[in-house]
């Protein structure tokens, strides 16, 4: 398995777009943190620690799209180039190949996500000065680390959808539909069904972990539900990957 992880790591790092995308993620996170906090610093009223943290992490929805797209690309680029055949010749146990890819991808993006979330938080607090929050305040660390976890989860979700769809554009559309459109659609369900189901929908559940507001699900329960979504997508991807012709 170590060999497989090294193998997937070489694939991931030897593509320039991986590094550019992750660099883009850091820039997006930090610039949003700066701008959001700059706007907030001009307001008169005193802000809660949770609120300023959330502001600093304001780019999370966009960042999740970036990481999820990278997840899609991690597998769809193999299908586009036909490299998937070379890969499956080397590793015919497809479940293992996917597990190694997911592990490597998750480990790499988690590191970058943690760094960019922390950087965004620190930039935001630097802008706010004495009115900013610190990591020791209740819930703040959970929100910052949680943001990185959510982004990593979105990346894995993208990887699973990319494996299902086998196509870059199709995979990104699937990500947008499930993370962004689905909550809107559920919200429109009649007779209060929308309000009842909403807390369990993909990104709504997942982003509980980086929220300071009270909700139906606790932060960790929400993230747990998001993990179930990821697991379901991954399971479907695994079943299809094993059954399909490469």
């Amino acid at each position: 398995m170590i060999g497989l992880l090294r193998s997937e790591w070489i694939k991931l790092r030897s593509i320039r777009s991986t590094m550019w995308t992750m660099a883009g993620l850091v820039v997006v996170m930090i610039s949003f943190a700066y701008l959001n906090s700059a706007i907030a610093s001009r307001q008169a009223e005193r802000l809660q620690a949770g609120e300023v943290t959330q502001m600093a992490l304001g780019a999370a929805p966009f960042a999740s799209l970036i990481v999820a797209s990278l997840g899609v690309l991690a597998i769809s680029s193999e299908y586009r180039t036909g490299m998937i055949r070379t890969t499956l010749l080397a590793v015919p146990r497809r479940g293992r190949m996917l597990a190694a890819k997911a592990t490597t991808f998750a480990a790499f993006t988690l590191v970058v996500n943690l760094l960019s979330c922390l950087a965004a938080f620190l930039v935001g607090q630097a802008v706010l000065g004495s009115r900013g929050a610190s990591l020791e305040e209740p819930g703040v660390l959970r929100m910052v680390a949680g943001c990185a976890l959510y982004l990593t989860g979105a990346g894995l979700f993208g990887l699973a959808l990319g494996t299902l769809v086998r196509h870059t554009a199709g995979g990104v559309v699937a990500v947008i539909v499930t993370l962004f459109v689905l909550p809107q659609l559920v919200g429109m369900l009649p007779n209060g069904a929308g309000a009842r189901l909403m807390p369990y929908v993909t990104s709504v559940a997942g982003m509980r972990i980086m929220s300071s507001a009270p909700g139906v699900l606790t932060p960790w329960a929400g993230f747990g539900v998001f993990c179930l979504w990821i697991a379901a997508a991954a399971l479907a991807a695994l079943v299809l990957l094993r059954g399909r012709d490469a």
């Binding site: 193998s7 997937e8 694939k11 030897s14 593509i15 180039t81 070379t86």
Partner: peptide, 16 residues
């Protein structure tokens, strides 16, 4: 041609 054009020959073989 089942390779990724952005990678070097060495990295392609190294992953295998």
């Amino acid at each position: 041609k089942s390779v990724h054009g952005g990678r070097s020959a060495r990295n392609h073989l190294l992953y295998l």
